[in-house]
Amino acid sequence: MLTRALLVLLLVLNLGVATWWLLRGPPPKAAPAPLPVGAQRLQLTSEAAATAIHAAAAAGNGSDALVEKPAAPTTTATAAVEAPAAETPAAEAAVPPAPTAQCLSLGPFASTGAVAQAQVQVKPLVERVSVRKQEPSRGRGWRVFQPPSADAAAADAAAQRIAAAGFSDYFVVREGAEANSVALGRYGSEAAARKRADALVAAGIPAQAAPVGGEGDATTVYWLDVAAAAGFDAGKAQTLVAATERRQLDCRSLR
Rank of each mutant, 00 (worst) to 15 (best):
R132H: 14
S149M: 08
V226P: 00
P99I: 07
P73G: 13
V241Q: 02
Q102C: 10
D151R: 08
E190G: 10
P73V: 13
L11D: 05
V212G: 01
T112R: 15
A90K: 09
P99N: 10
P136I: 07
A85Q: 11
A114T: 03
A153R: 13
G38I: 01
P108W: 02
Q117D: 06
S137Y: 09
G231L: 03
P108S: 12
G216P: 04
V221H: 06
R247T: 13
E68R: 15
T74E: 11
L106K: 02
L9F: 11
E190S: 14
A150R: 12
S181F: 03
T100S: 13
P36N: 07
A229V: 02
A165S: 11
N180G: 06
R161C: 03
P206K: 03
M1H: 11
P108V: 03
V201Y: 00
G113E: 09
V241H: 02
A55R: 13
K195L: 08
A52V: 10
A18V: 04
V67I: 14
V221W: 02
A65S: 14
K195P: 01
T100E: 12
Q43D: 00
L35H: 03
L15K: 01
T3Y: 08
L7S: 09
T244N: 10
L104F: 15
E178C: 07
A59V: 10
E190V: 12
V129R: 03
F232T: 07
K29P: 11
Q238A: 07
A110L: 07
V126S: 04
G213D: 03
G25L: 06
V126Y: 00
G214D: 04
Q121F: 02
L240H: 02
I53V: 14
G216K: 04
P27C: 08
T3K: 09
A98K: 10
E175P: 04
K69R: 15
T100L: 13
A154C: 09
A33Q: 07
T100R: 14
P36G: 11
T244G: 14
A218N: 14
P99E: 12
A202E: 01
V122Q: 00
A152F: 08
L35I: 03
G216A: 05
E68L: 15
G16D: 00
F171T: 09
V241F: 01
R128M: 03
L240F: 02
A18E: 01
E47Y: 07
A79S: 07
A33H: 02
R255M: 12
V122P: 00
Y187G: 03
A72W: 08
Q117A: 11
A203L: 03
A50T: 11
I53C: 06
L184V: 00
L6A: 13
Y222T: 06
A56C: 11
G213A: 05
L15M: 02
K29C: 02
D64K: 14
Q248A: 15
T76A: 11
P34D: 06
A192V: 04
G62H: 11
Q119W: 04
Q134G: 10
E82A: 15
R128L: 07
V182P: 00
P73I: 11
R132T: 14
